[in-house]
Each structure stands twice: as structure tokens, then as C-alpha cells.
Design a protein around this nucleic acid. Sequence first.
DNA 1: TTACATTTGATATTATTTGTCAAGTCAATC
DNA 2: GATTGACTTGACAAATAATATCAAATGTAA
Lengths: 91, 91
Amino acid sequence: MLGHKIRELREQNQMLLRQLAAQLEIDTAVLSKMERGDRLFQKDDVKALAGIFNQSEEELLTLWLADKVLKAMENENYKQQALKLVLNTLK
Amino acid sequence: MLGHKIRELREQNQMLLRQLAAQLEIDTAVLSKMERGDRLFQKDDVKALAGIFNQSEEELLTLWLADKVLKAMENENYKQQALKLVLNTLK
DNA sequence: TTACATTTGATATTATTTGTCAAGTCAATC
DNA sequence: GATTGACTTGACAAATAATATCAAATGTAA
């Protein structure tokens, strides 16, 4: 979810992967994987990205957390029931 | 969530921690932590517990997955927004 | 006090995540 | 069809986190 958003923002800004990777001080290969959803971003990088692309931290961190949750649940059954349970316990 | 349920079931069945731990072939100390919510159960143990206490796997695995999600989100902000996002992407 | 059930904390083991780098693919241009 | 540049992939190492094991601590009832 976040990877897709970042790729869009990067392309809108005509930046190369290696340019953005340099700003984040991470390896280009890793950023490629993050944008493609193979890896999670680091939380600090998400905050930096909000600054770089002038997006709200809330929006990007929400997407990031959603990715984390999806990863925690991948290959499991009863996802929806579990999510609803969690939502209810948070209320 | 699951730990609490298992403790209830164990006490209803007048079993000791070490008895249940023996059935699951895990250390008593570890089971204690699992029931108290300090640690997640192993998925295989959840399935075994459904058999031992004659509960539906679906119910217990749902509680277990909810615990996993809660752990993945602990200490983060924007939990509810993220969960709603995930729920929507699953639909 | 003793005996027993449970909890806690320290350490060791194992698994997962993350970083690094080289080689690979793919288009565009020459 | 060779070269260049952007991106992707996969293998391996390093760092981090999860799990197991065990001894000691706590709590409690007889």
C-alpha cells in the first residue's frame, strides 16, 4: 500500500530510485523492494518521506501500519473476524 | 485474548499449568506466559488446544490471529485507520 | 515451615528481518 | 546488435527479534 504510493509520488516528482534512495540513505535495491511491496519501509524513512513529498505523516504512517498488519496476517485464515475483534477491543 | 480464554478453559477443567503444558509438550513457564499474554501461542498449539478443550479451531485461531495483529501494532499510532484500511482491502 | 502451583528473569538457541553487493532484466539509443 | 542507464532479483552476511530452557522468586494453602 505504501510502496505504491511512494512510487507514484517519486514518479510525479521525476525522481530516480537512486536519488530517493540517496536522500533516505538506503540502498537502491532495498528501496526498489520497498516500493514493490517486497519489504516494509523503516518507520523513520516513512517520516522522512512525508517531509520529502510534503505528505501528512498520518497518511503515510497509516499506510505503513496497514502493510505491517497485512504482513502479520499473510497466509492465515479468519482475517476478517480477527480484524473486527481487534477493532472492537480498541474502541 | 486467547491466553485469557485458555486460562478459563483450563481452570474449568481443573487442569494444572504443568498438566496442560505436558499435553502440548511445552515448558510450564512458557505456557504461563502465553496465558498471561506475555507471549503468543504457537499455531500448532492452538489447534491442539481446540482439540483438548473441544472448541472450534476457528474461534481459537481467530483469537490467536487477533493477538498477533495487536502485537504487530503495539506502540503505534493510527491503529484504527490502518485496521479499517486493511479490512477494506480484504473485501 | 513445607509443599505445590505459578511467575519472573537470565541466558542460550533459533528464526526472522535487514543490509550489502553482484549479477540480471529491460528499454531506449546509438 | 552493442552500449547505456534504470530498475530488479537473488545470494549471503549482519543485526534484531522470537522462542526455549532452566533456576530462582513469589504466592498460598495446609
